[in-house]
Computed example of a mutant assay.
Amino acid sequence: MYAQSWQRLLDQAGPGGQQSDMSLASAGAAGGGRNDAGGELKHSAKPWSDAAGTAHALETDTATAKAKLTSAHAGAEAGTAGLASMAALTSVLTSWEKRLTAVHTECGALEPALRKTAWAQGEVDAGVKSALAQFSAPAGKGQ
């Protein structure tokens, strides 16, 4: 038996307070978003943490790539002054350095935001579970 306020809501929801077969429109026809029990939308911090790890790896890899690219071009200008190919090579180097710097900077800003989202999601879940615990007690208890 549920607390009176919850029982009223369940009664309004349908005969005997049975769980409806509602789902999110974005969940897809195959029951995406439902767990094996068939009624609860589930989520996890794992995708957010994985994305943060990928952002960190990209941040590190772009810094390494930029350093290698710059190092590989060091000294290339010696003895090639005035050649059109050297001007083109320098232009390409500058362009790639800008791109790699932009990716490095973006990933550096994105990683902590993704980690914070994963953490906050867990905190919200715990808070909601704690707040709803008082309503899961049988009628007459915990009210």
Rank of each mutant, 00 (worst) to 15 (best):
S23I: 08
S49F: 09
G108R: 06
E59I: 01
G140H: 07
E106G: 02
S136A: 12
E123Y: 11
M86T: 05
H56D: 13
E40M: 07
E59A: 03
N35S: 03
T60K: 14
E97D: 15
H104S: 09
G32H: 00
A133E: 14
T54S: 12
E77M: 00
A25P: 12
A57V: 03
R99P: 01
A72S: 13
G79E: 03
G108D: 08
T62V: 06
S49K: 15
A87F: 10
T94V: 04
L10W: 13
A3T: 06
A57S: 08
S5Q: 05
A139V: 02
L114Y: 12
T64I: 15
A25I: 10
T90C: 01
L110P: 10
Q7T: 02
S95D: 14
T90K: 08
A76R: 05
A113E: 10
A45P: 14
V128Q: 11
G33T: 08
A27F: 00
A133I: 08
T80Q: 00
R99L: 13
A51C: 12
R99V: 15
A81M: 00
Q143H: 09
T62A: 07
E97G: 06
A29R: 03
A30P: 02
G79A: 07
A63H: 12
G75R: 07
A55N: 09
E97A: 00
D125V: 12
P15K: 03
W48Y: 15
A65I: 11
H73I: 00
G17E: 09
A139D: 05
E59Q: 01
T70V: 13
E40Y: 07
G53H: 05
L132I: 03
A81W: 00
G142L: 08
W119D: 15
A45E: 10
T70H: 04
L24W: 03
H73Y: 13
P112I: 03
Q134F: 07
S136T: 14
A51R: 11
G108S: 04
E40K: 06
G38P: 11
Q12Y: 07
A88S: 12
S23R: 09
A131T: 14
L89S: 15
E40F: 01
L9S: 04
A51L: 14
R8Y: 09
S23M: 08
A81V: 00
T101Q: 15
S23P: 01
P15T: 01
G79Q: 03
A25M: 01
Q121L: 15
S26M: 01
W96G: 01
